Simulated scan of single mutants.
Amino acid sequence: MLEKIKETARYIQTKISVKPRVAIILGSGLGDLANDIEVSEKILYSDIPNFPVSTIKGHKGQLIFGKLSGVDVVAMQGRFHYYEGYTMAEVTFPVRVFKQLGIEYLFVSNASGGVNPDFEVGDIMFITDHINLLPNPLIGPNIDELGPRFVDMSEAYDKHLLSIATRVARQHGIHYKTGVYAGTPGPTYETPSEYYYIRTLGADAVGMSTVPEVIVARHMNMPVFAVSVISDLGVKGKIIQISHQEVLAAVEQVTPKLITIIKDVIKSL
């Protein structure tokens, strides 16, 4: 795998004119952040050696390079999921490549179901910790050049980046929540009993992504900031039928606020 990572990074380096410091993984419906990037290059996933291809509506499937808030960045407009049939190594492959490109910080966004009864649709939740209910992406032989065999996860989500985000949100008068994210395989939305189970475990929100990328980033000692948009509720008395289109619509309502937060946090770096 190490040679594939290096091969992919070498290819990308021949196509770009910037040296990105920050990588941003744009989740469902959050691709509009790309409109705020002063774009220097775009590369389709299908053109990149060894790269998977996103199959989900709302995920365009390209890397965007340029400046955001004056900082060189790369944005993934579309991510990969375990439920698409990819291995965990494939799901997290882009994060490995980002590290090889010299990325210093990883920003991750997603749409998730709120299981905290104090949450409402449209809430922004800064992720403070996670519960992994997916296969761990580090299972298998360890590549020492990438990171240690056993990875400390006591600070999976960087406290300094969290403090910047909370300050930025308050400065702009943006309402936010903090909480624990549970990562599940999907692709089904949870049953009422599963929502209850996930809440009992200690989670505030649940989704089908993010955790694998964060684990791999921490394996490589890359600081992470992650945020969820609460797109539906898994709370007793508030559970209704939900579709992917409704998830995208819920996220769209708060995307401008989320863009403001991410841009200002990056500016503070």
Rank of each mutant, 00 (worst) to 15 (best):
F150W: 12
A111I: 06
I198R: 13
T184F: 05
F119Y: 09
G122L: 05
Y197T: 14
L146M: 12
G147Q: 04
F93S: 04
A89R: 14
I143R: 05
V115K: 03
Y181N: 00
Y176C: 08
G202I: 03
I127D: 01
P117Y: 00
T188M: 15
E120C: 06
M88G: 09
V214K: 00
D129A: 05
Y86A: 03
L134C: 11
T210V: 10
E194T: 08
V216E: 01
L134V: 09
V180D: 02
G147R: 01
N132D: 11
D152N: 15
F93G: 04
E194D: 15
A203I: 14
P141N: 11
V121I: 14
P192I: 11
G183N: 10
E213T: 02
V206G: 12
F225P: 03
P117V: 02
M153A: 14
Y195A: 12
A156T: 13
S109V: 05
E213V: 01
M220C: 14
A169P: 05
L233I: 08
R199F: 11
R170Y: 09
P94Y: 02
H130E: 08
L201V: 09
A203L: 12
Q171K: 15
R149A: 13
G186A: 03
Q171C: 13
L162C: 07
V211E: 00
I164P: 06
G186R: 00
V180K: 02
A217Q: 05
T210F: 02
H160Y: 11
